[in-house]
Simulated assay, not measured.
Amino acid sequence: MTGDRTAHSPVAALRELEGRRATGVLRVRDEGALHIVEGSVAYAECRSAPSLEHLLAAAPAPGALGEAGMEAVARLALHDAAYFLLGSEDGAEFTEGPPHRLAHLCRIAPDELVAERARRAARLDEALPSAARDHAPVVPVRRVGRQRVVLTAVEAEILLNADGRRAPADLARDLGRSAFDCLLAVRRLAAAGMLRPPQDAPVPDLPVRRRGETEAPEWEPVGHEVLLRLRSGLEGLA
């Protein structure tokens, strides 16, 4: 096998490999790897996203998924990993070799991966145009400055399982959820004022409040009672 180290971005490298109809592994430094089969991407692994095996293990009945179901989960895992890998600014190293053992599940053209990544990035920015929480531990607040908050199932799972130590990628892996879905949930929760800002986030300049003006609520760590109510609500949706 031959190695080909290049200063190209992962996207540029993928397009070059597509033109060559190459088969092998494109490694993106310490982030992960994209497995190529005749120029298409067939499998991906990334430290910031759950593997296909993680997602399959979390499926209600993985043995009953069938061919179409397996392909759907494989595509989800691939797009999840590609979101992070294609955004890397590191160079990539390609090594020719045989296809990955799970390469038969799906094949995705590089341009499709690039377009899907752009769509996901736009959705994240629409929810909250800041990546400050993407890699920071998720810490819920105790008091919510709203009378009623409607949560999706993923958002509720994030709040129930956030322990102040795990980042969105860690929670996605432990819950068997899509990394993108967890990132989107975290940004939406942050936009709704339900998460504390990361410790190393810059402190914003707050306007001077005069006597009689409404003050912002004080956020505190989430309490056990709040988590119990959230769990009860989730069980009611089951």
Rank of each mutant, 00 (worst) to 15 (best):
V150K: 07
E155V: 00
L105S: 07
S178M: 01
A92G: 08
A162S: 13
H100K: 03
A153I: 13
A103S: 14
L160M: 13
F94N: 04
A179R: 02
V154M: 02
D125P: 08
V154K: 02
R142A: 15
V154E: 03
A127T: 05
T95F: 08
A122N: 08
R101F: 13
D134L: 13
G97Q: 04
E96Q: 10
E116D: 14
E157M: 15
V150L: 09
Q147S: 13
G91Y: 03
R120W: 05
L102P: 06
V139F: 00
A172T: 05
E93Q: 08
A156P: 08
A169R: 04
A131F: 10
P140D: 00
L113Y: 01
P168R: 00
G164Y: 02
D174E: 15
R117H: 09
H100C: 00
A121E: 14
R165N: 11
G91R: 04
L128D: 05
A132C: 11
R177L: 15
R142C: 06
P99W: 01
A153L: 13
A109V: 14
P137D: 04
R120L: 11
L159Q: 04
L175C: 10
L124A: 10
A131V: 14
Q147C: 08
H135L: 11
R148N: 09
P140W: 00
R165S: 15
R143A: 12
T152A: 09
A92K: 02
A92N: 04
D174N: 10
A103M: 02
E96H: 14
R173W: 03
R146C: 10
R119A: 13
D174K: 11
R133N: 08
V149S: 11
R177I: 02
T95L: 11
D111R: 08
R123D: 09
A121Q: 14
E155L: 01
L102R: 12
L105Y: 06
D90I: 02
A156R: 13
I108T: 15
T152E: 14
E93D: 09
E126P: 10
P129W: 04
R165K: 12
V139P: 00
E93A: 06
I158N: 00
E126C: 05
D134A: 12
R133W: 07
L175R: 07
H135T: 13
P98M: 05
E116H: 10
R119Q: 12
E126D: 13
A169T: 08
E93S: 09
L171F: 01
T95A: 09
S178D: 07
A103C: 03
L160E: 11
L171M: 11
D111K: 05
P110E: 00
A115L: 10
G97T: 08
V139T: 13
G176A: 06
A153P: 11
V154L: 03
C106T: 15
L128C: 06
L128N: 07
D163N: 15
V139Y: 00
E112I: 05
Q147A: 14
E93Y: 01
E157L: 15
L175E: 10
T95Q: 13
R117D: 04
D170N: 11
A103W: 01
E157R: 12
V138D: 01
G91M: 03
G91T: 11
P129Y: 00
E96T: 12
D134M: 09
A136C: 07
A156K: 05
G164D: 01
G91E: 02
P168V: 00
E112W: 00
I108Q: 08
